[in-house]
Amino acid sequence: MSDTGVPSYLIPRVSPEAAEFFAGALRGELRIQRCPNCGLHHHYPRLACPHCGSERLEWITATGLGSLHSFTVIRQNGIPPFKEQVPFVVGLVDLDEPGARFIAQLPTVAPEDAVIGMRLRATYRPASDEVAFVDFGPDA
């Protein structure tokens, strides 16, 4: 565990297909996979395109911009540190890159300000030497 304050049980093991994603997030870049065969993007990273099945994937640096597809306000979560953080917003973000949807915490969006369709921008939060989490906040 590093000194980021993120409990170790929240930090995923870096699976091989996700190594590029986490390396990018640590640099402050949103790296996602694009499929040259069907032209669509996806997230989380995979061996093959979940849209068309092609294994010929390329990595791109996404704009980090997207729109809120849906959200919830978590008001009860028994696990630290969330237990102390409630209420907070978790959303599904449709990235501007077609095909990719991202689940993220929206720590800078107040529960009463969350609205479907709002424009969002990615921010990066190191969790360990190998992993950074991607949050989203208002694109102001």
């Binding site: 993120v6 929240l10 930090i11 989380y44 696990i79 915490q105």
Partner: peptide, 25 residues
């Protein structure tokens, strides 16, 4: 709303390991 899978994100099924750190229940 209360239980983390035993072992946390490192032991979670790969898809869920992307959700757990967001605090989603």
């Amino acid at each position: 709303t209360g239980r983390a899978g035993g072992g946390g994100a490192a032991a979670m099924p790969y898809p869920m390991s992307w959700e757990l750190p967001t605090g989603l229940t």
